[in-house]
């Protein structure tokens, strides 16, 4: 699953623009992740701050 580190995220929306599924949305000052996220990791790669991380659900 995609984990948003809210203390790192600067709610800039950079990730929203690259999400091929349209699964991310910047709602005012927080980022929402929809169910159709495929854990592809594109957003985690391009985040300027490193606020996004795809984590193994078994470890949660």
């Amino acid at each position: 699953m995609l984990n948003v580190h809210r203390d790192i995220c600067g709610y800039c929306g950079c990730c929203v623009s690259v999400c091929p599924e349209g699964a991310l949305e910047l709602i005012d000052a927080y980022l929402s992740v929809e169910k159709n996220c495929t854990n592809c990791g594109i957003c985690a790669k391009i985040c300027p701050l490193g606020a996004l991380e795809v984590i193994d659900e078994k470890q949660v």
Partner: peptide, 12 residues
């Protein structure tokens, strides 16, 4: 409207 990964300027 998806921006290709190589064409997003990740900025600070």
């Amino acid at each position: 409207t998806t921006v290709p990964v190589r064409e997003i300027m990740s900025s600070v």
